[in-house]
């Protein structure tokens, strides 16, 4: 965490330097080429511009919103509050129906960059690089969500190992106002939709009382790689484009991979035995909304593995089945 944020500080200084240089050259350019510049009107944003903006806005703005979450015929709603104070994020999620379930999260350095957004920002929309090799992006005109002007963005996977996304992004801020996750057959698996958005809240907005605090997981890439070398198991197959986002070696042994939008985690636990000594774990999958899990028992290793994530079942199954253990 400390290392990560030091690095972010460096990157901030670097960015400032680049901006300063850009201003110098930019003004010289503007003076000499004024007529040409006039024709370079701010054109419509590309899909990658929008996506890039989305990864920043939800962490950098102060807002309060009501958001609905729909899976099948079930609808639930939440109030989400996000503020930034002294470069740190404070965020809460309150459930508005059913039993009270409130979550808060505070103190996340706003400059901490996680591997997922990094994949989206890294190649700036270069069609053949990184994230953009695995998805087709298409800007699909205007929409109106939560009383705000929005832009639709279709994101289609180029292979069978990912899901598709229909996003509506706030025209002004880039905030994600609506997200449909669709499977390969085009069926909507789950939907998040803002129904109210207030961008005029003060940064001192109080956080929710008595809420459960969410842990900050340090997703630094270098650390993850270090821990992998100490681990005895690993998946032998993950779909191309997925990067190791996180890895722990404590009691919650798990590895998390992301391609920028989809995230999946692999967990390994000691095999549970039934009374007669046979493994009590049945191989199979679970599904809810866009989330699936697939569990495979590895009797020889006395372990079972579960892959969880917002990916097609096929992907979870193949990753779970590809696990292998290093000889000890």
């Amino acid at each position: 965490m400390r290392g990560l944020c030091l690095r972010s500080l460096n990157s901030v200084i670097l960015r400032l330097a680049i901006v300063a240089m850009g201003l110098m050259f930019g003004s010289a350019y503007a003076l000499s080429l004024e007529p040409e510049l006039a024709s370079l009107e701010p054109s419509a944003e590309t899909g990658s511009d929008l996506l890039n903006k989305m990864t920043h806005s939800h962490r950098e703005l102060n807002y309060r919103a009501i958001v609905s979450y729909q899976v099948g015929d079930q609808l639930s709603s939440y109030r989400i509050t996000h503020t930034v104070r002294d470069g740190k994020e404070f965020e809460s999620l309150e459930s508005l129906d059913g039993s009270h379930q409130d979550l808060v999260y505070h103190g996340h350095d706003v400059n901490c960059v996680h591997p997922g957004p990094q994949l989206i920002r890294l190649f700036g929309g270069d069609e053949e690089q990184g994230f953009y090799r695995y998805y087709d992006l298409e800007v699909k005109g205007a929409a109106r969500v939560a009383g705000r002007e929005a832009i639709n963005l279709m994101i289609r996977p180029r292979d069978v190992y990912r899901l598709g996304y229909k996003l509506s992004l706030d025209k002004e801020t880039g905030l994600l106002l609506r997200s449909d996750i669709v499977n390969q057959q085009g069926k909507v698996l789950e939907r998040f939709q803002y129904v109210m958005l207030n961008l005029n809240i003060s940064a001192d907005e109080p956080v929710v009382e008595d809420a459960k605090e969410v842990q900050h997981r340090d997703n630094k890439v270098g650390d993850a790689a270090l821990l992998v070398s100490q681990r005895t198991w690993r998946p032998n197959w993950i779909p191309a484009g997925f990067t190791l986002a996180q890895s722990e070696n404590n009691d919650e042994a798990g590895m998390t991979y992301t391609d920028g939008l989809a995230v999946m985690s692999v967990f390994v636990e000691p095999l549970i035995k039934a009374a007669d000594g046979s493994p009590a774990i049945i191989e199979g999958g679970m599904r809810r909304g866009a989330s699936v899990s697939y569990t495979v028992a590895f009797a020889e290793q006395g372990s079972f593995a579960t892959v969880v994530g917002e990916v097609p079942m096929l992907t979870a199954k193949q990753v779970a089945k590809s696990l292998s253990w290093a000889a000890q």
Partner: peptide, 30 residues
Amino acid sequence: AYLRKHTDRAAFNNGQGMVSYARVVSQESK
């Protein structure tokens, strides 16, 4: 249980942030 642990990791990587926890909470409050 796995979905909750997974969401702790996913929320920072999927571009959606804290809203991702709705997946966990909606299920637990059923």
